[in-house]
Amino acid sequence: MKLSGLIIALGIALLSLALTSINATVTLTNTFTNSYSIYIPGTAIGTLQLSQNATNITTYLLVIHNGEREFVKLPATLYLSPGNWTLMPYNETYYQIVNKVENVTEKTNCGNVTVQKVIKVSVENVTNKLTSPVIVKVNIYRMYLVRDPGLIEVIGISTLIIGIALFVVERFHS
């Protein structure tokens, strides 16, 4: 049985696997209020877009990536690197305009009169729980077929060369 043909064919297959990547952009959209986690394999390249559909809210998220903790202020775009990503709310700050009723004493000619007045006060609220959900968009714009394209390329080329050498040997020494 001649092995050279098989080895050449496998070399071409490995080379094509190393050189090809899926370029169609895939977007995974999710919302969360408690926590969100996703596993990114080593073959994917993309971004993580975090946003919130609210204008007067400032939210900080705790992003845990492979054990590293980082605080991120929304909206944010993170570059995905392989590994586990976990997003958790850290705190949320928002200003609320509250109508406050106050007793105001006014001096009039007839004496002091106590009047109730409605005053608008803005109150800063800080919570650990999110009131408005966070929108997570995982954009994968490139997906390699193999984890280490360079290594596979080298293996493919060397397999190809071995196959061609074997082919020459089989051709002229039999």
Binding site: A13, I22, V26, I140
Partner: peptide, 18 residues
Amino acid sequence: LVLPTMLVANIFLNAYYE
């Protein structure tokens, strides 16, 4: 014909995984 085709045809694994 068969072995390289089998190897390369597994790209669907990656595509669906993504």
